[in-house]
């Protein structure tokens, strides 16, 4: 199957100032990430806050232009941000934001906002748009009375349903969800995740699902990529990566998130400072916190390489124990 979306070694750095005297710092938010996404698949991106997940998601949609590397969507290079070609492509790739209240206009009834993509892309006439939008809202579980309300008159979960309905109304092929449930009440999260799973299955959507919450990713993703300080350090089928993590960082993450049927005894505790993208450690970026650190880790950066079929990781221990060449055979 051909890829809907391909990211080829994309990198994005932000230049900022720190402190009163304005020391210029460069933050490499995303640093050489490659991935592909095919129709009907959900790729989960996990990692701590600040690891570059949102930046990656924005580059995948062309909302931000990579400094290095390229993005291809639907077998063509991503058009430049804001161009007519870019705007037309929005019909086929959409986004669900973390904060639904922020993503909605407070001054318009939600029905109008759900109908807006149809207006923008000149689909149907005014009457048809309203009907389609109403149907879409009902499909995500809102009543026709709630459809006429303003965002602040809905609950958090209802707002996120509105955002999802709006994202899906042009029948896109690709959906990027950036922490779609982290702002929601825990009791609501499962409902919204189930809604996304249903929608994805019914439409054969390709989905990039960003979250720092492994439980949610486990539910929805077929493949997973784990990010640490802007790089992917482990990737593979969700079942492999989340049940039998290999990279020391992933193992720490997974053990921190309790899963059914696992013993608390083998918990690996993450120690040390949380990562600071402005001061990236030398060698393996994880080395200051890694329980298995060696001298080599401090100087030499490991590269992402295959450790099992369709399973890669970036760790010296893994690649020396099982060299990629031996494994691929």
């Amino acid at each position: 199957m051909t890829a809907l979306l391909t990211l080829d070694a994309v990198a994005r750095a932000y230049v900022g100032r720190q402190g009163l005297f304005g020391r210029v710092t460069t933050v490499r938010a995303v640093d050489g990430v490659s991935l592909t996404l095919v129709r009907g698949e959900t790729l989960g991106i996990v990692g701590e806050s600040g690891s570059g997940k949102s930046t990656l998601g924005r580059m995948a949609l062309g909302l931000e232009t990579p400094d290095e590397g390229g993005v291809r969507a639907f077998d063509a290079p991503m058009p430049a941000l804001g161009t007519p070609g870019w705007r037309a492509l929005r019909r086929r790739m959409q986004m669900v934001f973390q904060d639904p209240l922020g993503a909605l206009d407070r001054r318009l009834p939600v029905l109008d906002q759900v109908a807006e993509p149809l207006t923008i892309h000149a689909i149907g006439d005014a009457k048809a748009r309203q009907d389609v939008a109403m149907a879409a809202l009902q499909a995500v579980g809102l009543s026709s009375e709630q459809a006429l309300r303003y965002p602040h008159a809905l609950s958090g979960g209802q707002r996120q349903r509105v955002v999802i309905a709006r994202a899906l109304i042009t029948d896109p092929d690709l959906l990027v969800c950036d922490e779609p449930v982290s702002a929601l009440d825990v009791s609501i999260q499962a409902q919204v995740v189930n809604l996304l799973i249903d929608m994805q299955a019914a439409r054969g959507l390709a989905m990039l699902f960003i979250s720092h919450d492994l439980r949610v990713v486990r539910q929805i993703a077929s493949r997973v990529a784990v990010m640490y300080l802007g790089r992917i350090i482990e990737t593979g089928a969700a079942a492999d990566v989340l049940r039998a993590p290999r990279h020391p960082y992933t193992r720490a993450l997974v053990s921190a998130a309790p899963a059914p049927g696992r013993d608390r005894a083998d918990r690996v505790i993450l120690t040390g400072e949380p990562p600071n993208p402005a001061a990236r450690p030398t060698g393996c970026a994880f080395h200051p916190r890694c329980p298995l650190v060696t001298d080599r880790c401090r100087t030499e950066a490991p590269v992402l390489s295959a450790i099992a079929p369709a399973h890669s990781a970036a760790c010296h221990l893994l690649s020396t124990q099982t060299p990629p060449a031996a494994k691929a055979a």
């Binding site: 949609l61 909302l63 037309a88 993503a103 909605l104 923008i120």
Partner: peptide, 14 residues
Amino acid sequence: QGYATAVTQLGAAP
């Protein structure tokens, strides 16, 4: 932040 980004993302012209 917020609604303007979201609407840009929908493909709206400035």
